[in-house]
Deep mutational scan, measured.
Amino acid sequence: MQRVNMIMAESPGLITICLLGYLLSAECTVFLDHENANKILNRPKRYNSGKLEEFVQGNLERECMEEKCSFEEAREVFENTERTTEFWKQYVDGDQCESNPCLNGGSCKDDINSYECWCPFGFEGKNCELDVTCNIKNGRCEQFCKNSADNKVVCSCTEGYRLAENQKSCEPAVPFPCGRVSVSQTSKLTRAETVFPDVDYVNSTEAETILDNITQSTQSFNDFTRVVGGEDAKPGQFPWQVVLNGKVDAFCGGSIVNEKWIVTAAHCVETGVKITVVAGEHNIEETEHTEQKRNVIRIIPHHNYNAAINKYNHDIALLELDEPLVLNSYVTPICIADKEYTNIFLKFGSGYVSGWGRVFHKGRSALVLQYLRVPLVDRATCLRSTKFTIYNNMFCAGFHEGGRDSCQGDSGGPHVTEVEGTSFLTGIISWGEECAMKGKYGIYTKVSRYVNWIKEKTKLT
């Protein structure tokens, strides 16, 4: 034993070699072989497995989906700052455009905790909710729209109204504003409101030439003092309507412009014939205590009207009353817009006519005020429907199939267009061939041609 100890002390290297040989010859039971080890760690190889990531292109799944990435790591994937920024906006807080917040056709661009709407022409605001041009839906104005110097929408209202708090709607500024039905039992019968379409306001006024200088022999019209197929109006439903009495009662109609003036057809009036105007009328054979009678003290036909040349060209006249009318729910003026808007309103496509005229061709006159909704007829169809001249200051309205029309005794009465609950004068009943005849239409004086003249002559002093 002493000898062994001496050998170990003198030859430590020998001992180490012996131990190493023993270990190498022993069977290893701690580690699995290569094949079995792979069965336990069965993990798919990654895209760049075996390579240094710093030297390969980034992978979106590896960089940002398996674990949260930084902007720089995302930049490695896209290799483009702009594309990385677009991805980053949604990656950080989701897609803010998912709810489609942009209105009126706006395009949404996502941002971090926010979004941006790219608005089409005519709109602005956070969600493109603000109209900035009158060309689109009248700028959301209830009545009139004008573009300011910086191309912003400025709404306005006709006389007797003021802008509401929203700067879009119009509200009454006087007790009985024009064009409004205020009798409670008839307010439910107000005709369907007309909503502004998209309009090209630059070209809204037709490029028409008034044929002022045409000389033409007097034409022989049949029954051209021209509501057939209409309905009984309720008291106060058309408070701007008046009836004219002269040699015979209810020979023509008219509309209240203001307390002192009536507008009617020029062919209705004769110099030297006494005319009485009755406002607030409903049943011409009954006294309903809503009527107001006034005498006409002055007749002003349009300066281009000449019955000797043509009885229905420039067929418009103004009547001055001896005493002002007292405005109330049964006696209310009709609204008159400017030339541009009167023309736009007419193009809405349908209007209402009213009167006490004959209820059928050569038949009896109506006792109760009649009204009828009539569609506008395109000019080409209008011209083809008659052998008589249709001037540019006239328009056609009615039904091709016949059966409904204005008729004798309705002449001078109103053709009105309702705009968001307020009625505007767009025409004056003038003439036609018979009444409600198939293929024939009622012919009306186009008020847009005469609004400046009306307003100039009827100013209240």
Score class of each variant (00 low, 15 high):
Pro177Ser: 05
Asn80Ile: 04
Gly427Asp: 01
Val248Ser: 11
Pro12Trp: 06
Gly351Trp: 00
Ser156Tyr: 11
Pro324Thr: 03
Val242Pro: 00
Ile429Lys: 14
Asp150Arg: 09
Arg384Asn: 15
Gly230Asn: 12
Arg191Tyr: 07
Glu420Gly: 14
Ile309Trp: 08
Val92Ala: 15
Lys45Trp: 08
Tyr201Met: 12
Thr287Ser: 14
Asn135Gln: 14
Ala279Arg: 00
Asn245Pro: 03
Glu340Leu: 10
Gln370Phe: 02
Lys51Arg: 11
Thr190Glu: 08
Cys155Ile: 00
Tyr352Ala: 06
Arg364Phe: 06
Leu60Pro: 15
Ala192Gly: 11
Gly413Glu: 02
Tyr161His: 04
Thr290Tyr: 10
Gly357Met: 10
Lys311Thr: 06
Asn151Cys: 04
Gly50Ala: 13
Thr218Leu: 11
Thr381Pro: 05
Cys18Asp: 02
Asp338Trp: 03
Glu76Asn: 14
Ile7Ser: 07
Tyr391Arg: 14
Glu76Thr: 14
Ala307Gln: 11
Val273Cys: 06
Pro177Trp: 01
Pro101Thr: 04
Leu372Asn: 12
Leu14Met: 09
Gln408Asn: 13
Thr426Pro: 00
Thr264Cys: 07
Val154Ser: 10
Gly229His: 06
Pro375Gly: 14
Asp110Arg: 08
Met437His: 10
Ile336Asn: 01
Arg384Gly: 10
Tyr47Glu: 06
Ser184Trp: 09
Gly357Leu: 06
Ile309Leu: 09
Phe388Cys: 07
Thr85Gly: 10
Ser182Tyr: 09
Leu23Tyr: 08
Cys335Ala: 00
Lys89Asp: 13
Leu23Val: 13
Arg373Lys: 15
Cys335Trp: 00
Lys152Phe: 09
Phe31Asp: 08
Lys137Pro: 06
Leu103Ser: 07
Gly236Phe: 05
Arg364Tyr: 08
Gly272Ile: 07
Ile210Met: 09
Ser220Gln: 10
Asn295Glu: 13
Gly413Ser: 14
Cys155Asp: 00
Thr417Pro: 00
Val30Leu: 14
Phe87Thr: 15
Lys438Arg: 12
Ile443Asn: 01
His34Lys: 12
Leu130Lys: 15
Gln370Glu: 04
Asp110Met: 09
Val56His: 14
Thr29Leu: 14
Val331His: 01
Val377Leu: 10
Arg449Trp: 09
Gly13Ser: 14
Pro177His: 02
Glu82Ala: 13
Leu14Trp: 12
Pro120Leu: 06
Thr381Ala: 12
Asp322Ile: 02
His267Ser: 11
Val243Cys: 05
Gly13Arg: 06
Asn313His: 13
Lys234Ser: 14
His361Leu: 11
Leu367Ile: 11
Gly439Lys: 09
Cys170Ala: 01
Asp378Asn: 10
Val195Tyr: 15
Leu24Arg: 03
Asn452Tyr: 07
Glu165Ala: 06
Ser220Pro: 13
Arg404Asn: 06
Gln408His: 15
Glu288Val: 06
Tyr341Trp: 08
Leu24Ala: 11
Cys119Ala: 00
Glu35Ile: 10
Glu79Gln: 15
Glu323Cys: 04
Cys268Ser: 01
Val92Tyr: 05
Ser430Phe: 03
Ser11Lys: 15
Phe345Val: 04
His302Trp: 06
Asn283Ala: 07
Lys89Tyr: 06
Lys39Leu: 09
Thr84Arg: 07
Arg140Pro: 07
Leu130Phe: 10
Lys126Leu: 10
Val269Glu: 02
Ser411His: 13
Gly363His: 13
Gly105Cys: 01
Phe87Lys: 15
Ala37Thr: 14
Val154Trp: 10
Ile428Tyr: 05
Leu24Val: 09
Leu372Trp: 15
Val4Asn: 11
Lys274Tyr: 06
Ser148Pro: 07
Leu14Glu: 02
Asn283Leu: 10
Arg191Phe: 09
Met394Pro: 01
Val374Ile: 08
Tyr330Val: 05
Glu401Leu: 12
Glu420Lys: 05
Glu433Lys: 07
Glu67Tyr: 06
Trp118Lys: 01
Cys170Trp: 00
Phe251Leu: 09
Phe360Ala: 08
Asn393Asp: 10
Asn295Tyr: 07
Val377Met: 06
Glu320Asn: 02
Asn328Gly: 07
Ala308Ile: 07
Val56Ser: 14
Phe144Asp: 01
Gly351Asp: 01
Thr461Leu: 07
Val331Glu: 00
Pro324Glu: 06
Gly413Asp: 05
Val447Asp: 00
Gln185Met: 08
Glu79Asp: 15
Ala307Asp: 06
Arg191Val: 15
Ser329Lys: 14
Arg140Val: 05
Gly50Phe: 09
Gly413Val: 07
Lys234Phe: 13
Asn104Arg: 03
Cys18Asn: 03
Asn48Met: 12
Lys51His: 12
Glu418Leu: 09
Leu425Asp: 01
Arg364Lys: 15
Lys168Leu: 12
Ile275Leu: 11
Thr194Lys: 08
Tyr352Gly: 04
Thr84Val: 06
Gly421Met: 04
Tyr115Thr: 02
Ser354Val: 12
Asp223Ser: 12
Ser169Ala: 11
Val331Thr: 05
Thr342Lys: 00
Leu460Cys: 08
Ser182Gly: 11
Tyr305Asp: 01
